[in-house]
């Protein structure tokens, strides 16, 4: 199977034009494969939760019943991004599987909304939230190694509980960031090739080769997002993850779930406000 479609430019140069659209199905199959393997792993292996106990967590009197996790602004960003992402994926790939509609218009409009929301998120997360809470730290990596050793039956200390975000969340965020930035940057340039009313159309901004590579990168990131979004939705609806999903809707998670999954030292939650009975997180971000 060829992963890239090539064409001969008017100047006789062989240039890439698109990804091979069969990669859509490769991404779908990869997403389904992950879901099946992960489900089977949880059903067959039934891995126990083995976190290291910390003395501090036994003294949790100051933890509120509802532990605030996401601000309203962060939640709004998340769901706007989700809506635009689904719009982008459906408008990009449904026409490729035979469902015809005026997709370009909706696609670039959704792309603009996503771009604006991402810009907002970058500023919001950089200056108003705990920027580093979503990036893997040394503890995450050490615990990940320990988990791997223990999976293979090797002696290793039990991992610590998570900070605000489990390592998987952080890695997923990194993957989404890379693919998202790839589609956004290439997509913004590609808007110079269609009539949008925003940019003056200039299809000769780059050489045919550069344009071709840009279309290929846009396509590869796009099909990558199919698999990533499938995995994200799957994780979001898994029973053991529902408290996290609910926190993205309501903004908080229960005290029990917080104490069970999260390290109060790595993600500190202060005592509840006397009036609202709600505490606040030391960090908040997405």
């Amino acid at each position: 199977m060829r992963f890239i479609q090539w064409a001969t430019s008017p100047w006789g140069q062989s240039v890439p034009t698109h990804i091979a659209w069969g990669l859509i199905w490769v991404a779908v199959i990869a997403g389904l494969f992950f879901m099946i393997v992960h489900s089977l792993y949880l059903i067959v292996v039934k891995p126990p939760k083995r976190f290291a106990e910390r003395a501090a967590e036994t003294n949790a009197a100051g933890i509120p019943e509802r532990v605030p996790r996401h601000t309203l602004a962060a939640r709004l960003f998340h769901w706007i991004m989700a809506a635009t992402m689904f719009t982008l994926l459906f408008t990009a790939f449904l026409p490729r599987v035979g469902i015809q509609f005026n997709w370009v218009l909706y696609h670039w409009i959704a792309g603009c909304v996503l771009t604006i929301s991402i810009l907002y998120h970058v500023v919001h997360a950089s200056f108003f939230l705990d920027f580093w809470s979503i990036w893997p730290d040394k503890t995450d990596l050490r615990d990940a190694m320990n988990r791997v050793w223990r999976f293979f039956g090797k002696p290793a200390p039990p991992p610590r509980k998570f900070a605000k975000y489990p390592l998987e969340n952080k890695l997923y965020h990194g993957a989404i960031m890379v693919t998202g930035l790839a589609v956004i940057v290439t997509g913004l340039f590609m808007m110079k090739r269609v009539q949008t009313g925003i940019f003056t159309r200039n299809p000769y901004l780059f050489s045919d080769m550069t344009w071709g590579l840009m279309y290929v990168l846009h396509g590869l990131a796009g099909v990558g997002l199919i698999a990533l979004v499938m995995v994200h939705v799957y994780m979001g609806i898994r029973p053991e993850k529902l408290p996290i999903t609910k926190s993205m809707i309501f903004g908080w998670m229960s005290r029990d779930f917080y104490l069970e999954e999260h390290d109060t030292g790595r993600w500190a939650v202060n005592a509840p406000d006397a009036k609202t009975k709600e505490g606040y997180a030391a960090s908040d971000g997405d």
């Binding site: 479609q5 064409a7 001969t8 240039v15 034009t17 090739r193 279309y215």
Partner: peptide, 9 residues
């Protein structure tokens, strides 16, 4: 290789 021919321009 224009749009109608499956290209990108």
């Amino acid at each position: 290789p224009c749009y109608r021919a499956g290209g990108n321009i």
